[in-house]
Design a protein around this nucleic acid. Structure first.
Length: 372
DNA sequence: GCATGACCTCA
DNA sequence: GAGGTCATG
């Protein structure tokens, strides 16, 4: 019998949960805004992906984050890691589920109070305030450093939907299998040694990676040859600028990719990744004018825009940046249309007539915004 | 320090 | 031309 993707409504007993308000986390924004590329909506509001070598399905209600962890293929949990197996056997079930809860809290960095940060950013920046009333719950993930680095090497000259396909193929081709759900097989992200293999470039070129194929293989090899497998995660403990410079020694890693990696997996919450898109936001919404009217994204423009936003938003500038970035994506523009619609006189009249007091469940719309 | 073109593929 | 990097003037 083929295993299926879990759905909360048809088996809630098997799910576990964490208290978490939607204002602190919105899965459909966080998992699809381009900071991670492997989560898929496998049922309405249900997101399936991989964290820590396990397949998870997540969904949420107003004040609760629900999660379901699948058993890896082949019987015992974590059978492709003997260390995990030993741990699983020597530990009680409740301990085990506490480990999983802690993995989720860590992945979503739930100790960071996003609501408080939104208030601070909104006070300092009126444009942010306007946007953030609609785009609540956009937070940074704390991703696996290997997955994050090699995914972002794929992002150059590229758009989200194609990156998703490439990262998926990368895992299918080089990652170890975890489990199969419905027609989909899930794999772990490839290890550094799998990526460093000399046959990898050609393999990935065949899979449509283009010139990025060589960057991926070379970066993996360089890390293993000159630093060792623990080097990447070790960058969590060095200062932002030092980590950034270290990453930039890798082929295919320039200023933008290095900043993404710093922000999204190395705990550098002040890092603001600047690309042409963010440059446009700075010019359009903040009247930012590059010093000498430069035509391209030079090192100086990167620095200036990064400094500008850091001064505006403070030590969590990278987190604030991701809210605006998310709000600018084409696929989320419908959330803004919602505001226009709710703001019309006709709709307000309709609300009054039908005496609907709360619309918090409609697209997470903030009812305070239209003065109900 | 800054600009330009090449690099892959796809829309 | 794209959410970029690298090598070259």
């Amino acid at each position: 019998i083929m295993a299926k993707h879990a759905v909360l409504s048809s088996g809630a007993k098997l799910w576990r949960s964490l208290p978490c308000a939607k204002s602190e986390l919105r899965l459909e924004l966080v998992l699809a805004c381009g900071q991670t590329f492997r989560w898929r909506e496998t049922a309405d509001g249900h997101w399936t992906g991989v964290i820590g070598g396990r397949v998870w399905t997540l969904t949420q209600t107003e004040d609760t984050l629900w999660y379901y962890v699948y058993t890896n293929q082949g019987g015992a949990d974590g059978e492709n890691s003997s260390e995990d197996s030993l741990r699983a056997e020597s530990v009680t079930a409740s301990h085990h589920s506490e480990v999983e809860a802690e993995m989720l809290r860590d992945y979503f960095q739930l100790h960071v109070k996003l609501g408080d940060l939104y208030k601070e950013w909104g006070t300092a920046d009126s444009h942010f305030k306007k946007i953030s009333d609609i785009f609540t719950g956009v937070r940074m993930l704390r991703q696996d450093p290997t997955e994050c680095l090699f995914s972002f090497i794929c992002t150059s000259n590229n758009h989200i939907s194609r990156i998703q396909g490439m990262v998926e193929r990368l895992c299918q081709a080089l990652g170890s299998p975890l489990c199969q759900l419905d027609q989909t097989s899930y794999h772990d992200f490839p290890t550094l040694s799998a990526l460093a293999d000399s046959g990898v470039e050609e393999r990935l070129r065949d899979l449509g990676f283009g010139y990025r194929a060589r960057f991926l293989q070379q970066s993996a090899k360089q890390i293993l040859d000159t630093h060792g497998p623990q080097w990447l995660v070790g960058l969590r403990n060095v200062p932002y600028m030092e980590a950034r410079d270290s990453l930039r020694t890798l082929p295919g890693v320039g200023t933008k990719v290095a900043d993404c990696v710093c922000l999204m997996c190395l705990d550098k919450c002040e890092a603001v990744p600047v690309d042409t898109h963010v440059w446009q936001i700075a010019k359009r919404d903040y009247k930012y004018t590059s010093g000498n009217g430069q035509k391209t994204l030079t090192e100086k423009v990167h620095r200036d825009i990064g400094d500008f936003f850091k001064k505006l938003w403070g030590p969590y500038a990278g987190w604030a940046h991701s809210v605006l970035f998310c709000a600018d994506l084409k696929k989320f523009q419908h959330l803004k249309e919602m505001t226009k619609m709710f703001s019309t006189q006709m709709f307000k009249k309709f609300l009054k007539q039908t005496r609907i007091k709360s619309f918090s469940n409609v697209a997470n719309f903030n009812s305070a915004k239209i003065g109900l």
